[in-house]
């Protein structure tokens, strides 16, 4: 966690000089497709996602920002599942809730001027922490673990200026949380639709 904290501090320090430049912030609706260990545990597409994003331009084609997102994956079923020092069999409800808080470095291409109409393409890489809760309800009991994971998330997309300093945003990002303690890593692909405003 020490290296995670240092990484965030470095990105924060990089952000400070950018505060004098144009900023774009907004919220998103997220649809996520589980992958890897996440898919093994909960195979359903998540339609329960949302997020907040903000970015500040440091130059014509770079920006630094922060993102917070929330996704809930779930699946019901039966079968036998491993638990700590044992196994359980029966109808169960499995859920993973992920909430990454990331600092993001963006590379932008397009018209970033205030009030501009038209597309603003971007690609970025985010790094930070993922809060992940993994829970299985079975019978009258439940197994639950909550961990902080270090992780990263490459992303790409575009914002389209529609006037009134407002942008509609479309993007995809691949979230990857590294293994944390005895918890497996988690990964999922998120498609986002958002609305944002420039100041």
């Amino acid at each position: 966690m020490k290296s995670v904290g240092l990484s965030i501090l470095m990105l924060l320090s990089m952000t400070v000089p950018a505060l004098a430049l144009i900023g774009i912030g907004g919220f998103t609706y997220d649809v996520s497709l589980p992958a890897g260990e996440t898919k093994d545990y909960t195979d359903n597409v998540s339609f329960r996602g949302l997020g907040l994003e903000a970015r500040w331009f440091r130059s014509d084609n770079t920006a630094i920002g922060f993102t917070w997102h929330w996704s809930t994956f779930h699946e019901q079923g039966g079968g036998t599942w491993p638990v700590e020092d044992g196994h359980v069999t029966g109808h169960n409800f499995r859920r993973i809730r992920c909430s990454p808080v990331l600092a993001v470095l963006y590379f932008e291409m397009g018209d970033i001027e205030y009030g501009a109409r038209g597309p603003l393409y971007y690609a970025g890489i985010g790094a930070g922490v993922f809060w992940i809760e993994k829970r299985m309800e079975i019978g009258t009991g439940a197994y639950q673990t909550t961990r902080w994971h270090f992780g990263f998330a490459p992303e790409a997309g575009f914002m389209y200026g529609v006037g009134f300093n407002t942008h509609v945003q479309f993007g995809v990002k691949f979230n990857y949380a590294l293994k944390s303690g005895d918890n497996t890593g988690h990964s999922y692909l998120t498609a986002i639709i958002g609305v944002s405003w420039a100041r």
């Binding site: 004098a20 144009i22 900023g23 919220f27 018209d111 001027e113 205030y114 501009a116 405003w197 420039a198």
Partner: peptide, 15 residues
């Protein structure tokens, strides 16, 4: 273009 860059980065109230 002719639009004006606003040199402030306060998060919009809407956000």
């Amino acid at each position: 273009g002719s639009t004006t860059m606003i040199r402030t980065a306060r998060l919009p109230l809407m956000t």
